[in-house]
Amino acid sequence: MMDWNPLILTFKLALITTVLLFMISIPLSYWLAYTKSKIKPVMETLVSMPLVLPPTVLGFYLLIAFSPSNAFGSWLDTWLGLKLVFSFEGLVIASVIYSLPFMVHPIQSGFSNLSPTLKEASYVLGKSKIKTLNKVLLPNIKSSLLTGIVLSFAHTVGEFGVILMIGGNIPGKTKVASIAIYDEVESLNYTVANNYSMILFAITFIILFLVYLLNGGYLKKIK
């Protein structure tokens, strides 16, 4: 009998992570796309680090930082009641950091590729920065937003190293599908491992396929 919990947990984690990332990445990408600040290269490097850093390195440092035996971890516990080690909340924060470049990069390049006159034209018409962002900039980078959302979702679904480091393997709490597959293979339950794998394979294929259909304009042509 297959346990559905790891799959449910995976998609719950991916969904929450994507929503949080979307809210964080719009202001961050906007800033990166338009700032002339000298610290921009530093910020860009930090955002991109998860692309090249082994997930275990990131997981290791998060584990150290969030550990209740350290200053930051115990501060989180005492003041916010947050235990981020071996908990679902910890996974969400680790996933947000780990998938940050997958959301920020498409949105940032979306902003950068827009003609600067669109923004200037809106300002000249007396529209505020917020209104310009909501009514002019974001609606014209819809495909970048979609790409960001889907890539971060898919990337979070595919996470393994970071989760294992910071979340461990607690059924119903931190045992996501990728960990469950590893677990089943270790116990030589190849059938169950295959079931999880097939489902992840199919779902990620469908998601990416839909994005290429939408962004490539194939669906519009049919209509």
Binding site: S122, V124, P139
Partner: peptide, 11 residues
């Protein structure tokens, strides 16, 4: 202000 490039909002 009318810009040299076209600045209409495509959306």
């Amino acid at each position: 202000f009318v810009f040299q490039e076209y600045s209409l909002f495509p959306n």
